[in-house]
């Protein structure tokens, strides 16, 4: 059921709002769920105290994941999702301001499906968000 959701993990309120607006403008059919940091993201998948591996978890169509966040940061969330059998197949797109080669390398090593740098210019930003929304919800095929 949750495959109709796009999970947006973003701690910066302005960036979250801009991304949400750009996704709305892209007119996707998916519901956008916003969580504000890495620990909220983990709660989304693995409700508090639930650590057993046979429980069903929420499966969004795609996760747009910020990298630099307070408490639990993006690559920790990424690592956790890719280590768990139940969440491994969910596409995770890193959506961040960081262009550092070190960050890009580490995310791919942890199993990120894509790495996209947030453009500063809003025209470009909304184009990038719209493209990635369409690509991951319409063009890209996943295994149920």
């Amino acid at each position: 059921m949750t495959e109709t959701e796009i999970l947006l993990v973003e701690d910066n309120a302005a960036d979250a709002r801009l991304t949400a607006i750009a996704l709305e403008d892209a007119q996707l059919k998916h519901k956008i769920v916003l969580v504000r940091d890495g620990s909220e993201a983990l709660d989304y998948f693995f409700p508090a105290g639930e650590q057993t591996s046979d429980m069903a978890v929420r499966l969004p169509k795609v996760v747009f994941l910020d990298l630099k966040m307070p408490k639990v940061n993006g690559n920790e969330v990424l690592a956790r999702l890719k280590q768990d059998e139940r969440t491994r197949k969910i596409p995770v797109v890193m959506f961040t301001s960081s262009q550092e080669p070190r960050d890009i390398k580490e995310c791919y090593a942890l199993g990120a499906n894509s790495y996209i740098v947030k453009p500063v210019d809003f025209d470009e930003f909304s184009k990038v968000v719209s493209n990635m929304g369409h690509y991951w919800t319409l063009d890209n095929l996943t295994i149920d």
């Binding site: 302005a14 801009l18 301001s97 500063v120 210019d121």
Partner: peptide
């Protein structure tokens, strides 16, 4: 420059919206 990107994006983005 890295840390300045987010606020600039917000200013230009919302002004644009």
């Amino acid at each position: 420059s890295h840390d300045l990107r987010a606020p600039v994006r917000a200013i230009s983005g919302f002004a644009r919206i």
